[in-house]
Design a protein around this nucleic acid. Structure first.
Lengths: 151, 151
DNA sequence: TTGACAAATAGGAATGGTTCTTATATGGTT
DNA sequence: AACCATATAAGAACCATTCCTATTTGTCAA
């Protein structure tokens, strides 16, 4: 008896998305790419390229760091992974200590400040407040700025 | 007649905060530090350490990059500047494409995902929608995680 | 199934940003 | 005015990322 036969796990679905999106974008399905994607969906800690490399080298001992790094960037380009805070740029500083919010252009990485009362008044959810001490909150919008939209 | 005599500009106030906070934290007021802070409050683009260095070298030609970098880090430690998105870490990846939100620990840099309906339903403000195309929005809370709180 | 070709990979070199080290200089205090 | 802890300049070291090139490998069409 094969109980699991028809159960589509989340991860199974994610792998299916991976195959489809790769094909749709004319990308070859290589063992390295598959392994990197698998490693990523197993991870629960928003790993860096180096983190993924360190884990995957146990399974594919001669994989190169460059492949891991390049592949993760490819994943974000075809929309099967997102890059989270820490955009791999130099640290950027802001002397404005008032609560404000950010729009970030995904193309040119410009960060634009904006103010918004509704956003300022957001409450930290109860369950988060129990575990953590939140000292600041801000809304981050990401998309295309007017310059990059034109192109 | 000195019209401006009593007008405290924002920047004047900011400089006052700079002096006070520096003293309170036992930091010396050096020409370099003052100049770096002035440069920062004039900037409107969330500059990187290198950006600030390139600007300030015109005024203090023999200042070193290291001083600029170290000083900006000091500013964020004593709370007169914030570091914005791009925490100077490696890029970090997330295979979860659903809308979710982030809590970031300011000490250990851990990013914790959480879900929240109210946050999901936030509207992009009208004036932002006119200028930009927002493709994602998320709330970022920053503070201390349970581990770092204990210490 | 095989052959051809475009795409992907490994490995190492190069780059760019950040941090460390150390000798010298200086702000703040006595 | 003199002292000392702190800050600075300069360059080396470090780390993450990207580039380069020769080799390998999916994929597709015959």
């Amino acid at each position: 008896m094969v109980y699991n036969m028809d159960i589509k796990t989340d991860k199974g679905e994610m792998m299916a998305v991976f195959f489809r999106r790769s094909r749709d974008n004319g990308l070859k399905i290589t063992p390295q790419r598959s392994a990197i994607y698998q490693e990523l969906i197993q991870a629960k800690d928003h790993p860096s390229a180096d983190d993924v490399y360190k884990r995957i080298i146990k399974k594919i001992p001669n994989i190169s760091f460059d492949t891991v790094n390049r592949t993760l960037l490819t994943f974000s380009k075809i929309g099967i992974a997102n890059i989270v805070e820490g955009y791999g740029q130099a640290k950027r500083y802001d002397p404005d200590l008032e609560t404000h919010h950010h729009f970030r252009c995904m193309k040119c990485n410009t960060i634009i400040d904006f103010h918004n009362k509704e956003y300022d008044n957001l409450k930290v959810p109860e369950d988060m407040r129990k575990q953590f001490t939140a000292m600041s909150k801000k809304v981050v919008l990401e998309g295309l700025c007017s310059k990059c939209k034109r192109r």
